[in-house]
Computed example of a mutant assay.
Amino acid sequence: MVPATLSLVADIGGTNTRVALANAATVRVDTVRRYRNAEFDGIGSVIARYLTDSGQDASGISGVCVAMAGPVHDGVGTLTNLDWRIDKAVLAEVLSAERVAVLNDLQAQGHAIGNIAAGDLDEVLPQPQVPDTAAKLVIGLGTGFNACPVFDTTAGRFVPPSEAGHVSLPTSIAELHPLLENLKDSGGYPSVEEVLSGRGVSHLHTALHGETIDPADILARIGEGEALACDTGALFVKVLGDVAGNLVLSHLPFGGVFLVGGVTRAFAPYLEQFDFVGAFRSKGRFSGFMEQFGVSVVSDDYAALTGCASHLSRA
């Protein structure tokens, strides 16, 4: 008999969607499948394909939770980089599930905290001992940029959504000032995401050196010690440290800061080289105060799926 706790979880990115089954808060890694979004007209058809491919009977699934890269309001979300509308009601129809949820992808990452194996957490700054209920902060760099606080309360875990990637770039970094004209989005606004994202790496390199190349090539050149690429990497990490420090002062996550996403993982080997900690703690008379916050890089690529499962298990 299929366990009553069996749920379906999905993580929708700009290019691919990953779908899996979960028992309570545990994702069954052997059930994870990846689908190219361009081959489907929406999440409903992806789920239908998954059920066919996996041989799973929809009637055995009691919950469904989808994480998506875009803002979510009242169970409805539109992806930032994909023309799909994710509707809580539509998901309930597809699976006839009792429990249905739509989360922003960073919210899902926030719900995963506490369910990530220690081996998938790479320490950047040590985490002081604090109560389990201390606030936490998740910062994600991938196709875009976002961040969200995580609060554990007597009523349960609360992970409010945000669109932190669309605040303006910090004015405290003098090296950015001559580059701002070339770091504006299509609306003429220099947002954090125009630097701290996959495309942002290329934007920053072009603004610095007049050379437009793929972010993966820039990372490869950094690994080889190429001077221009290292200049780009150093400024990227300085902006990341400064922005992360600003977010910490906004939310006071004494329970730790968790850096997630593909771009984060790509830059993780260079955080020490380019002095992330120095930029993170450089807050004037509050620089000493910043020593209270631990920082880790999450290397678990399935964290958003785990967060979806964890959220459903608490519902």
Rank of each mutant, 00 (worst) to 15 (best):
F280G: 02
S287T: 14
L271P: 06
R285W: 12
A266C: 01
L271G: 08
V297F: 04
G284P: 02
P253W: 07
G261M: 11
S287A: 11
A268F: 05
R265A: 11
V263P: 01
M290I: 02
V257N: 05
F258A: 06
P253C: 07
G262P: 09
V257K: 10
F280Q: 07
P269E: 08
P253N: 09
Q292N: 12
G262I: 10
V298Y: 01
S287M: 06
Q273S: 11
G278E: 14
S282E: 14
G261Y: 11
V277M: 11
Q292T: 08
V263E: 05
Y270T: 00
A279V: 08
F289S: 01
F254P: 07
T264H: 05
V298F: 02
F267Q: 04
F276V: 06
G284R: 13
M290F: 01
G256Y: 07
L259T: 09
P269H: 10
G262M: 06
K283V: 11
Y270H: 14
R285H: 12
G262R: 09
G255H: 13
S287Q: 04
A266N: 13
F276G: 11
A266F: 06
Y270D: 04
G284A: 13
V263Q: 08
V260D: 09
G261L: 04
G261Q: 10
F286V: 00
G294A: 09
P269F: 05
A266Y: 05
F280D: 09
G294S: 06
D275H: 14
R285N: 15
S299R: 12
A279N: 09
A268V: 00
S287C: 02
K283L: 13
G261I: 05
L271R: 03
V257G: 08
Y270S: 06
M290Y: 07
F258E: 08
F254Y: 15
F254V: 12
F254A: 15
L259G: 11
G294M: 04
S296I: 00
S282N: 15
G284K: 12
M290L: 09
Y270E: 04
V260E: 13
V297E: 02
G278Y: 10
K283P: 06
F293E: 00
